[in-house]
């Protein structure tokens, strides 16, 4: 019996080893340039996010991020809520991992000169064809007592926002940081911002459900890394701004300004948004309805367990 016991022990060790080997593959996290996502990079720069565990892939458009997730090249993605819904349409087991930030002025409608919201009536308003753009515009119009028919919407992709506005191809543009800061720097007038509708424009980290099963530890590691980045931003803002400005292509002041338009909730707040006050779920429902109305979503997304299991947070 001694032999058998030894054999079994040996087997157990090997099983343990093989499990480690499986989790040793780094998670791939795709993100575009967005100040709200910067704590990730801050964490990496501070060594709190090891490349061997979570590889950060810096992409230029959310389209590529979403493609990466769809094709399985990426495990985790930094996306807006509407993008997450869109992606969930294709990736069945997509889960919301955490809320990175909410827009608190980072999204805005900018117009020429002394124009106000009401002045936009009959004007050309550039807006990208994303759900966020449509949502933000419709919210802004609704807040000002107008409807979409009161303006002339002009479809503009994000990279076109700046040039189209500066070249007067549009009278106003629905845009967001860092374009917003740059355009404000050129003398553009902000007529509406997400500060008017707080907690409605939400940025998230989403994760493929399969990853949660296989590599839960890495996901926990990521969450911890995120909050260490957030802590770094809070505790050493100037150092952080310096690091961020390099990546964002902004001055430290601009970084500070752009961050003012964002609200980065702490761990407790995020937890309550995800699980307690149903904030995420309600907003997702609202957004989903709009997206279906706009034809952006072809089918209803299963929202019941769109959020990762609470146990991950405990």
């Amino acid at each position: 019996m001694g032999i058998i016991r030894n054999c079994l022990a040996y087997l157990m060790i090997m099983l343990a080893l093989s499990g480690c080997a499986e989790d040793s593959k780094p998670l791939r996290l795709g993100a575009v340039l967005w100040p709200g996502y910067e704590p990730l990079f801050l964490a990496r720069s501070q060594g709190d996010l090891e490349e061997e565990r979570v590889g950060l892939v810096e992409l230029l458009s959310t389209g590529e991020v979403m493609r990466g997730v769809r094709n399985g090249a990426l495990d985790v993605a930094a996306l807006t809520l509407d993008e997450a819904l869109l992606l969930a349409q294709d990736v069945e087991d997509l889960k919301i991992l955490l809320v990175t930030d909410t827009s608190y002025g980072a999204d805005a409608i900018l117009a020429d000169g002394e124009m106000t919201m009401s002045g936009l009536k009959g004007k050309r308003v550039g807006v990208d064809s994303t759900a966020l753009g449509a949502y933000f515009l419709s919210r802004a119009l609704a807040e000002s007592g107008m409807s979409e028919s009161d303006i002339i919407p002009v479809s503009l992709s994000v990279d076109m926002h700046e040039s189209a506005f500066l070249n007067d191809e549009v009278d106003a543009v629905v845009t967001f940081e860092p374009i917003r800061s740059r355009l404000l720097g050129t003398g553009a007038n902000q007529v509406f911002s997400s500060r008017d509708i707080p907690n409605e424009i939400i940025d998230l980290l989403v994760v493929r459900g399969a990853i949660l099963k296989d590599r839960e530890e890495s996901v926990r590691y990521l969450i911890d890394a995120w909050y260490s980045g957030v802590r770094f931003l809070r505790e050493k803002p100037q150092e952080a701004y310096g690091l961020m400005s390099e990546r964002l292509g902004l001055t430290e002041e601009q970084v500070e300004t752009s961050l003012e338009g964002l609200s980065i909730p702490d761990r407790k707040e995020v937890r309550s948004m995800l699980y307690d006050n149903n904030g995420i779920r309600a907003q997702a429902d609202r957004l989903e309805r709009l997206m279906i109305a706009e034809g952006l979503l072809t089918e209803q997304v299963q929202l019941d367990d769109i959020v990762v299991a609470r146990s991950l947070w405990d």
Binding site: L8, S18, A21, S24, P26
Partner: peptide
Amino acid sequence: QLLGNNLLGRIDNFFLWIAGFILLSAP
């Protein structure tokens, strides 16, 4: 490691498994 050695690690594992299995199968 991620490119090829990862595979190697898996192969190692695989052989370890086999060895373990053989050892276990002996009794």
